[in-house]
Design a protein around this nucleic acid. Structure first.
Lengths: 139, 139
DNA sequence: TATGCGATCTGTAGCCGCTACAGATGCAAG
DNA sequence: CTTGCATCTGTAGCGGCTACAGATCGCATA
């Protein structure tokens, strides 16, 4: 009879390897209540189950997509309670999308200014630089 | 005989109004050595001169362009000592430009994913959401 | 069974770039 | 002289981690 409670759970290092989330960060997520407190071994080491592994992967992906901890809290609450509506999730997502788009637009304006400044520069070895002038003189 | 030491200097609030930099932030810049320690009145209030006003404006603009404090330190050191070469300034600027461009590219990839997710969503009032599914299931 | 050593533990402090207090003063107008 | 806003110092907090120190755990080998 194989496959009887083969998986005694994952140690924190295992969780880290599987999700790519730093060990310190995993403990940090626990501290701020983003990840539930796992079981402990007799000696006190954390033992995670598959559910918690899935949740950490969720967090990792959401963070990778730039969702804030606060937003992830909201998404997780919905995903776990299953007392949410798809529309609510859609709202969080499009809200986040809008802020990403704003950030892109503002960075593109920035890019244009920096390119301008760089283009005006003679790259000479003299202490007279249009970039410094720009920063000092323009309103 | 007018115009004899008319300008006794700027109080911190005046500096704040003229540059748009928060008062707390001005003191913070002083603390970290980004702005020189100004003169004080007999009572201990800060009194800035025109030079310092210009420098704070410089910092403000550079921050607005996304230069880090560290980068600004470098730019300021060059701008003030005038022992810099234009090429050095150019290097800092193009380095910063490159990092801005990277940030734009990565946000655009993000945007695409978020748009995809949002588009797949039915926006229904059921607890079955492709966005949540995506976050949970995809590698 | 002892030992060695990597993994994990807790707790705390630091990073960046501010921001927000509290509680004590300064200063200028009326 | 009083009123009341401006400013002072010092410290703590934000988000989202990261980096220690110093102690303990747990598993493979001798």
């Amino acid at each position: 009879m194989p496959e009887i409670t083969k998986t005694r759970g994952y140690a924190i290092g295992e969780m880290s390897k599987r999700t790519g989330v730093n060990i310190e960060t995993i403990r940090y997520y626990e501290r701020i209540g983003l990840l539930p407190k796992p079981d402990r071994t007799a000696g006190g080491n954390r033992q995670y189950n598959h559910e918690q592994l899935k949740q950490l992967s969720f967090i990792k992906r959401a963070r990778g997509l730039g969702f804030s901890i606060r937003e992830i809290r909201g998404l997780l609450a919905m995903a776990i309670n299953t007392e949410f509506t798809c529309a609510e999730v859609h709202e969080i997502t499009t809200g986040h999308l809008a802020s990403v788009q704003e950030k892109i637009a503002s960075l593109q304006r920035l890019e244009a200014v920096l390119q301008d400044m760089a283009a005006q520069c003679s790259k000479g070895d003299v202490p007279d630089c249009p970039i410094v002038d720009t920063l000092f003189e323009l309103a």
